[in-house]
Nucleic acid binder design. Structure first.
Lengths: 99, 99
DNA sequence: TTCGTAGTTCGTAAGATGACGAATATCATA
DNA sequence: TATGATATTCGTCATCTTACGAACTACGAA
C-alpha cells in the first residue's frame, strides 16, 4: 500500500528512461547500426567504436536494461539485436511527444 | 587545424545531446506543458512541479542550453517558450532515427 | 529610497556515469 | 585437460548530475 504520491506520470518516466539510454553518442551509434542490420556481434562493434571493450559492455548493458536491445550468447560470441517491441513503443512515445 | 579524428557523427552527437535534455522526467513534464500552451512562466511551473525553485531554474537552464526552449524576462516574471526551430529539428532527427 | 516579488546563482553534498585495465567466466577445440 | 577466443564483471578514478537552502540580482511600487 504505497502512500507516496507519484511525482511524474508513467509516460514522463518512460520517455525520460528511454531518452537517457539515447543520451550518449556511442549508444546512438550502436542503435543505428543495429537498426540497420537487425543484429550484430559485440566484437564487430568493438572494432569500429573508439572505446575499450569493457566500456562497450557497459553501454550495451545500459541499452539492455532500458529494454532497447537484447543479447544472445552464441559461443564464443555475443549477438545483440534491437528489441522490436520496445523500439516501437519508444518510437510511438517520441512521435506523440513531438506532436 | 584540428588533428583529432571525430569520434561520432554530428547527427549522433545531436541526438545524444537532445536526448540528454529529455532524460529527466521533470524536463519531460516542462516540455509537455510548453508544447501544449506555447509559453508559460517559471512561477506557474514551480507551483505544479515537486522540486525547489532553484532546482527548477537548473532544469530550465539545461533545456535552454540544449536549445529546446528560450526564456524571456517580463518583469517581474520570466516567460519560457519552446524553441520551435530546434523542436522541429529534434522531431525530424528522432523520426529519422526510429525509421 | 526602501520594500517586496520573482528568479537566478552559489555552495555543497550525495549519488550516478563513463572511462580504463585487470581479473574472471564460458565454452569449443587441440 | 589445457588453451585460446570472446565477453563480462570488478575495482578505481574523475567528472557530471541532481537536489537543496542561502545569498544575490532586478525591477516596479509604495
Amino acid at each position: 500500500m504505497p502512500t507516496e504520491t507519484k511525482k511524474y506520470t508513467d509516460k514522463q518516466e518512460l520517455i525520460a528512461k528511454f531518452s537517457n539510454a539515447l543520451g550518449h553518442p556511442v549508444r546512438v551509434a550502436i542503435l543505428q547500426q543495429l537498426s540497420k542490420q537487425s543484429c550484430c556481434f559485440h566484437g564487430d562493434m568493438a572494432e569500429v567504436l573508439p572505446i575499450a571493450n569493457s566500456t562497450l559492455s557497459q553501454h550495451l548493458k545500459v541499452l539492455r536494461e532500458a529494454g532497447l536491445i537484447q543479447g544472445e550468447i552464441d559461443p564464443p560470441k555475443t549477438k545483440y539485436c534491437i528489441n522490436k517491441e520496445n523500439w516501437n513503443l519508444v518510437k510511438g512515445l517520441m512521435i506523440g511527444f513531438f506532436d
